[in-house]
Design a protein around this nucleic acid. Structure first.
Lengths: 354, 354
DNA sequence: TTGTATGCGTTATCAC
DNA sequence: GTGATAACGCATACAA
């Protein structure tokens, strides 16, 4: 910058202002400066700028890990939205460990990020480290795995709605006895999916039957075992809403083993839109969790907080509407397959990376 | 820091040195400073430090996107390795667009990263923007999609070896006529996989038969179509090495449709260890690409470059050994299933995130 | 519209 | 072993 100033015979102030498009600089001067900057291949030093302004163009992300289907997609959404707004992201993994989560936050603080996006580690029970973030006045948004309470900014999927639309769909397909493969109820997502299921039953005037709800850890083999158990009932179900795709898969495989037709004898739906749900026979009806939208929504909220710049801001809780993807495992009626097959794998089927 | 200095009645220099564990500070003083720092909840400002030192603790990553199975896993490996070495990563997506790739590099440069890890966009034909990086003396390592030539640091999977071990495995399983579902040959990975296939055939004294090599874009339906074509030959194959898991899947499904037994009538192997390969019936033999190891190796190499600090460094080209995962789609002999089933999905089957 | 002077928080240099 | 001082590159309050 000093070089440019010398060469143009002006002060560094002018250069600085021209480069940051300050209003008090004439267009002629701006052109000259920009031209010379290009010629000299000038690269602004964002560190220095951030140090001086006390605000960087960096957002911090803390996720449990970057694997599987969910988090990478959310991160994808976050990076895209952030980048569009002129921010970059620095990403940390907690590996499901509170201690690491704490360390990650410290690092992000000392990196002077402009805001933080967090999805909680599974082992986080104590939330004091987030108080530290807030006491610095640093904008903070949770996504997916959020701190409970009204006093936080958060973006989540409306799991209850997901359970509701899945179950209602099964009812519409002519199912009269609908079972539920439930997940660990101490986790909100599974509790809410179950609640949505119950809501739909109640709305349809069907009784709540605990023998139709099987609690598992959502693994494939547990789904199979659960289906076996259900089909051994005196009055077996004709529809199954599984709170996860893996247990839905296990259930479907077991149904086939028992000689049952899916969806005719038993209709099955899952949850999460895992890649494999489109390649089974039949493909599995599921709920898309709008991973990317979640990332984008989280960034939008965070940017609002950043712009608010410390001024009072009523915390917001955003619940995204889940999308039901009707596929063969549950489509018993004509015209049950109107929704586009949003194939999570389509994009990568011919992936040059292998 | 100034506060600490005042409170302890020493200079900021001393504080700085104590905090960075400088040798010229007595242990007593160090203790005092550290204690007070903890009490005041002192957070170092890495921006200021980096500005002064001219080196940040940040590594830049440029990937085409953060989706699918491959890149997230590599990024996972990168972040883990970097974090262990005291570095954090700032991540950028090129969206398969050279222009964006260029912009990403500019941003990383101006963020004063200590080094850059790049996997090329598919549209990158001109590599001048990387010259800019090197002219700044900034360490640069490519992974997976790399710039050709001996003068770059790069980490890749040994695809040729992958093709070779897959084909040899099929031979060992008693296959005598082995077909290959090849990918676009202008892409190195597919060219190399095909070459490995040919190497294994030659080694076994089998003729190279172009009618047994089907070129596709590696999509599922193309795999099915290819298998139909192959089985219609006067002398159909008894083994198929597909250069990708999706085409392997399509081929296997088509084989079943034709009433063929897999692997008895035709053995099939894929490439990439996609999540779904373990849940098909039978599960699909495939090649694990060691995504995480790739990330870790790339970081190790980058750190070496950083430590070299501009001193001459002979560029290194690291090729990771692929791992053959033998599963039911190709296991025709007793004892063909010794390798552990490294299930890419196992970790997430009961994922609380849904 | 432009320039001067100062400071962001940290560390390297040199002197003591 | 410790301290004073300058400097990293940029942005702003204030003056002109």
């Amino acid at each position: 910058m000093a070089d440019l100033a010398r060469e143009l015979g002006v002060s560094m102030t002018t250069i600085s202002r021209a480069l940051s498009d300050h209003h008090s600089i004439g267009p002629a001067m701006k052109q000259k400066v920009l031209k010379l900057a290009k010629k000299y291949n000038y690269q602004p030093n964002r560190l220095a700028s951030a140090l001086r302004k006390g605000k960087s163009q960096l957002l911090g992300i803390v996720v449990p890990y970057i694997e599987g289907r969910f988090f990478p997609s959310v991160v994808h959404g976050i990076e895209s939205a952030a980048s569009k707004a002129g921010y970059n992201v620095i990403i940390c993994q907690s590996n499901e460990d509170v201690a690491q989560e704490r360390r990650n936050l410290d690092i992000l603080l000392s990196a002077q990020v402009a805001g933080v996006l967090v999805s909680l580690s599974r082992t986080t029970r104590d939330f004091r480290h987030f108080e530290k973030v807030r006491s610095r006045g640093l904008p903070l948004v949770f996504f997916d795995r959020v701190v409970e309470g009204e006093n936080v900014n958060a973006v989540v999927l409306d799991d209850q709605e997901g359970g509701y639309v899945s179950t209602r769909h099964l009812l519409q397909q002519g199912c009269h006895r609908i079972a539920h493969l439930a997940g660990p109820q101490h986790l909100n997502i599974y509790k809410n999916r179950r609640q949505g299921y119950l809501d739909a039953l109640r709305e349809a005037g069907l009784p709540e039957d605990e023998s139709l709800i099987i609690y598992t850890e959502m693994a494939q083999d547990q789904g199979a075992e659960a289906l076996r158990q259900l089909m051994a009932l005196p009055n077996p179900p004709d529809g199954v809403f599984a709170a996860g795709d893996y247990s839905a898969l296990g259930a479907m495989q077991e149904a086939h083993r028992l000689g049952l037709q899916v969806p005719q004898d038993v209709a099955i739906t899952g949850f999460s839109n895992e890649t494999f749900t489109t390649i089974t026979e039949p493909p599995i009806t599921t709920i898309d969790q709008r991973c990317e939208e979640m990332g984008q929504a989280a960034v939008r909220l965070l940017l609002e907080l950043i712009e608010a710049d410390g001024r009072p801001f009523a915390p917001r809780h955003i619940a995204l509407r889940p999308e039901l993807l009707v596929r063969g495992s549950s489509a018993r009626t004509e015209g049950a397959l109107p929704s586009p097959v949003r194939d999570p794998a389509a994009k990568f089927a011919g992936n040059v990376t292998g």
